[in-house]
Design a protein around this nucleic acid. Structure first.
Length: 273
DNA sequence: AGAAGAACCTGGTAGC
DNA sequence: TGCTACCAGGTTCTTC
């Protein structure tokens, strides 16, 4: 679920609700694997209880909750992680891993597959944190442009789809939007990176920005598990992802399904060259 | 260095 | 109905 557009939806929905709110109480599942990268997890409640949320940001697929002046609660939802705003008395089940209690509601992190990650960074640890150090530029920024992508793809033999999933190249792009971007740019996901011409890369950059903006506008894409913090489904509908055997929305040919870099990949063999 | 594949997890479902 | 095998939107490690 959680690609850039879904995490951005989390950010927008949460920002107005939790900014300025004091964290009254924290509950964490002690044995939960989502804290496996955070050795000091037992101290998490002590670190943040009684403190105020100052900002809600995002970098790539990481949600960043700024607490007081010098702490950031970092949440990576992984494949199935979700954040929910709920009544304080709402029951937690065995897939809940963390709850932040505010005055009138609580924020719950739920993840049944436990590929998600949660940890806390102090400001001075932030810049040297390895998870952020090598991420590429935000795809919706000016720095993510045809020059950047050409530089990253033009020497590579790997399929362009696999390269788009590399967070050092196109951070925030995941399996769905990589397929969608290739479809809109009319580029086969199987083509080698070094095989793309400048004009192909220009179309691809435009397509990546377009699919992400549209998905954010619609509150993300729900294939299976994704819900926004209020429990609503994402309203974005993929043009090619998940449409195996159905007619291409451009030319009517059947959509193919294959594997690229071990990931399920959908494309139209007629439109995408 | 870079490409490919497996591993990490659980739950849902297709097929028998 | 019940069992097994396989599949899933992310990341990271190992092997070649």
């Amino acid at each position: 679920m959680a690609e850039l557009a879904e995490v951005e939806t989390f950010r927008k929905e949460l920002r107005n609700k939790i900014c300025g709110q004091k964290i009254r109480k924290v509950w964490i599942r002690g044995s939960s694997l989502v804290f496996r990268d955070f050795p000091k997890r037992k101290q998490l409640p002590n670190m943040v209880e009684g403190k105020v949320i100052m900002a809600v940001g995002r970098r790539c697929k990481y949600l960043l909750i700024g607490i007081d002046r010098n702490l950031t609660l970092v949440i990576h939802p992984g494949m199935t992680g979700n954040l929910f705003l709920r009544e304080r008395i709402a029951k937690r089940d065995r897939h809940c891993h963390m709850e932040l209690y505010f005055r009138n509601f609580k924020l719950t992190f739920r993840d049944h597959r436990m590929f998600g990650r949660i940890f806390v960074l102090r400001n001075k640890e932030f810049t040297c944190f390895p998870g952020f150090a090598f991420l590429g530029p935000e795809p919706l920024s000016k720095e993510f442009n045809e020059n950047w992508l050409y530089e990253k793809l033009s020497t590579r033999r790997a399929p362009v789809k696999a390269l788009l999933l590399d967070q050092k190249i196109a951070c925030g792009v995941g399996n769905i939007y990589a397929d969608e971007a290739c479809f809109i740019a009319r580029i086969s996901p199987l083509r080698q990176g070094r095989d793309l011409k400048h004009q192909d890369i220009e179309r691809l950059v435009r397509a990546i920005k377009y699919v992400l903006k549209e998905a954010i506008k619609r509150g993300g894409t729900t294939i299976r598990d994704y819900r926004n913090p209020n429990g609503k489904l994402g309203a974005n509908r993929p043009l090619v992802y998940g449409r195996f055997g159905k007619g291409c929305l451009t030319c009517g040919e059947k959509i193919y399904r294959t594997k690229v870099g071990n990931r399920t990949t959908f494309y139209c063999p007629a439109c995408q060259q």
